[in-house]
Design a protein around this nucleic acid. Structure first.
Lengths: 254, 254
DNA sequence: GCCAGATGTTCCGTTACACGGAACGCGCTG
DNA sequence: CAGCGCGTTCCGTGTAACGGAACATCTGGC
């Protein structure tokens, strides 16, 4: 990114890089800006609280990122608007339900409601998940064209998370065709061993796919046919969520 | 901030303002940059996913802020380093324990471990809390000079959150003198009605106060003398957390 | 229904500052 | 002790950030 990208782009790139790197040299390499530019941006991030010097010449993310995210979550309309419908789905099925928003090439959980089961899911609000391995992610991908899906795959790769993860573009595209036909996606231990989810896309008021909702269960607690039998409730809840978000006709669009 | 502050400062200011404002004009007013500058920065934030256009000419925070915070939390050393000591304190007392980091004029929860009680605290990781109303916040303030405390009070105000909140600078300073003498702070329904907490400051490897840990209980579940009797365990745990963070002598400094 | 005012968006001339290469200081290692 | 790598600082250069003005659109009051 040397001599490339605006000052704004460089600032955001350094902010992002700080989540993975601590040393000035590594941040410069990861972002393509020069060492002195990285250093100068880091000083500004320290001033704002987005970075902290560790006292040894390296830097780490500052708490300001967390307070900003917390504030955003407090005011994030989609999560609040969806919470009623998500809670109703959780009560009706008894399973843990999630609402995640697409964020460029991944999704981030913005709501999670614990089901009435004697176990808890390892997911948490704020956690990022891959699109190709999760029910919500695949539901989102199914709303995109094959060309858009392939572009995402090429940027992110299709890393296996379990032995059941779909790792070829052909397999994923074929799978997504099936998701489009069904109107929902299934993560059958593709993201986390022992966990099975069913997800449906949700749309915002512009009709664009925003993210999705899902129900999650231990594989030993619910078999595939049993999970599929809950699909109509999840589809109805996704429609309610989309309606709450102002979507006119929240059906799958092609 | 017109012609004032670097491009980096303006970018971060707009990013922050976006958590409270949606319209370009309001963001410009809140940050002091011109409408065209605010608009230009917003376009870059949209490109990065830090902002989303709402389709009606306004903007809202984008999911990228949440995925970045999630990634920071995954790698945030203090929370991971503290988690063993925090867990031990939770097991020993049976109460919900928190770890929060000071973030300029507030604190943000970076860890929370649920106690073995038949109730849950409304707090959540990522949530910001005021310094003057919480046990951890007051423990942090007690590590600062009166001048620094007054400067913070003037920036934030001393808004009442419950009828028991300390809302005058004199009362707060007197209270903090007591906190220094005891080595711990008590939030006696000052932040949330019906909730009582005991908090102790923790220090980082440079000896600076980083934040604090606390135990929290329903007021009806534990009276004040009972809570005070647990202070030595919290103080010991805070020492363990500080040691884990590399602090040499994590005692209250003056 | 019309018009004034407010807001979002775009344009562009000016100049302030972002940029990065070079240099310096420091620490580590062989 | 020399060489290397890294963090930090400096400064000359040139370009991109800046914001005022203009335009398009929307809203609300009369």
């Amino acid at each position: 990114m040397a001599r490339e990208g605006s000052s704004i782009d460089k600032t955001l790139a350094v902010l992002e890089a700080l989540a993975e790197h601590h040393r000035v040299t590594d941040i410069a390499a990861a972002t393509g800006v020069s060492k002195s530019t990285a250093h100068r941006i880091l000083q500004a991030l320290v001033t704002w609280g987005f970075a902290r010097p560790d006292g040894l010449g390296s830097y780490e993310p500052g708490p300001r990122i967390l307070t900003l995210a917390g504030r955003v979550m407090q005011r994030f309309d989609p999560a609040r608007q969806a919470s009623g419908a998500l809670h109703a789905l959780c009560e009706a099925t008894g399973f843990t339900t999630h609402f995640a928003i697409r964020s460029v090439d991944e999704a981030v959980y913005v709501d999670k409601q614990e089901g009435r089961r004697p176990y808890q899911m390892p997911s948490r609000i704020g956690m990022s998940v891959a699109l190709h391995t999760t029910a919500i992610g695949k539901a989102v991908l199914a709303e995109l064209s094959d060309a858009e899906v392939l572009a995402i795959c090429r940027r992110t790769g299709l890393a296996p998370r379990t032995p059941r993860t779909l790792t070829s573009e052909e397999d994923l595209l074929a799978h997504l065709a099936g998701v489009r036909a069904l109107g929902y996606a299934i993560d059958d231990e593709e993201n986390e061993p022992g966990i099975r989810c069913l997800g449906v896309a949700v749309f915002d008021h512009t009709g664009q796919v925003l993210g999705g909702i899902s129900v999650s269960t231990l594989a030993m607690d619910m078999d595939l046919p049993g999970l599929r039998s809950r699909a109509p409730e999840v589809i109805a809840a996704a429609r309610d969520v989309s309606a709450a978000l102002g979507a006119a006709t929240p059906t799958a669009r092609r």
